[in-house]
């Protein structure tokens, strides 16, 4: 029932886009720059999230006491905040009149309305999804295994790269897929912080929303294209996902 509820609107979108001039919408000049920009920015943001997020998730998962609990809760906050509010918050920090505004200005850096701003907005909204998956993956690793590795003389970085990282990899891939998908769909924070400029900050969701104002068919065609691409990329990520290595519990 739930699956039906989730899939039927998407199916309706695809069917309708296929019936009504499928070419016309995709021929709209806004589509390809938006697609290229979406793929580029989501790749950048996902790489940033995966690299920085893995380090943070490891610290949270291994951490004991108040710090780790606090950090874990805090890192989930962006999920609850409406993205548009997040965009305003980013303007208030990185904008011209923001906290770092004068500093950035003196360095000759202007972030709002740039592609970098799109990536920042995507990182902001998508990182929690990766962190949650990665923290859970690291937590699933049996602690005695990590202790043994240390007693064998392995330094903490070595334990991380040789033992923890390979074991958590399937979970990390899952987090990559989740956060990539969230970054692709990101709309509100981008709109507020990066604006809507074709070729520079107009990602697929923004192009869809722009088209909704004038040309419903084009909007549906782009939306259908986005659903297809998201589906394909998630399939590829799933295919690349390494097989789950049974945890230390398998030694039972």
């Amino acid at each position: 029932m739930l699956l039906l509820f989730l899939l039927v609107p998407l199916g309706g979108l695809l069917v309708r886009a296929a019936i009504t001039h499928p070419g016309a919408g995709l021929a709209s000049p806004a589509v390809w720059p938006a697609l290229r920009l979406s793929l580029f920015t989501t790749t950048c943001s996902t790489v940033c999230v995966a690299v920085l997020g893995t380090a943070l998730a490891w610290r949270i998962a291994r951490g004991q006491g108040a710090w780790a609990r606090w950090a874990e809760t805090a890192s989930q906050l962006p999920v609850v905040i409406p993205p548009a509010v997040a965009g305003v918050a980013m303007l208030l920090v990185f904008g011209r009149r923001g906290v770092f505004g004068p500093l950035l200005d003196r360095a000759g850096i202007a972030l709002p309305f740039t592609t970098a701003a799109v990536v920042m907005a995507e990182i902001f909204v998508s990182a929690p999804f990766f962190l949650q998956a990665a923290t859970a993956a690291f937590r699933r690793i049996d602690e005695p295994m990590l202790i043994v590795a240390r007693t064998l003389g392995a330094s903490p970085p070595r334990v991380f790269f040789r033992i923890a990282l390979p074991l958590a990899l399937p979970g990390l891939w899952g987090g990559v897929a989740m956060s990539w998908a969230r970054a692709l769909g990101e709309f509100g924070a981008t709109l507020m912080f990066a604006g809507n400029m074709p070729g520079r900050t107009q990602t697929l969701p923004l192009a869809i929303y722009s088209a909704l104002e004038s040309d419903l068919d084009a909007a549906q065609a782009i939306a259908a294209l986005m659903v297809v691409i998201a589906f394909l990329v998630l399939l590829v990520l799933r295919a690349l996902q390494p097989g789950t290595v049974t945890g230390g519990g398998a030694a039972r």
């Binding site: 005695p144 202790i147 043994v148 240390r150 007693t151 074991l167 039972r252």
Partner: peptide
């Protein structure tokens, strides 16, 4: 520090590294 004490530790249930073969487990050390 743990890694400099040079103690051989075998925890309950062996705690082998599941992504490595038996030989690679020993080779890790």
């Amino acid at each position: 520090p743990v890694e400099e004490r040079r103690l051989g530790y075998v925890p309950q249930d062996a705690a082998l590294f599941p992504h490595l073969s038996a030989r690679e487990n020993v080779r890790f050390a």
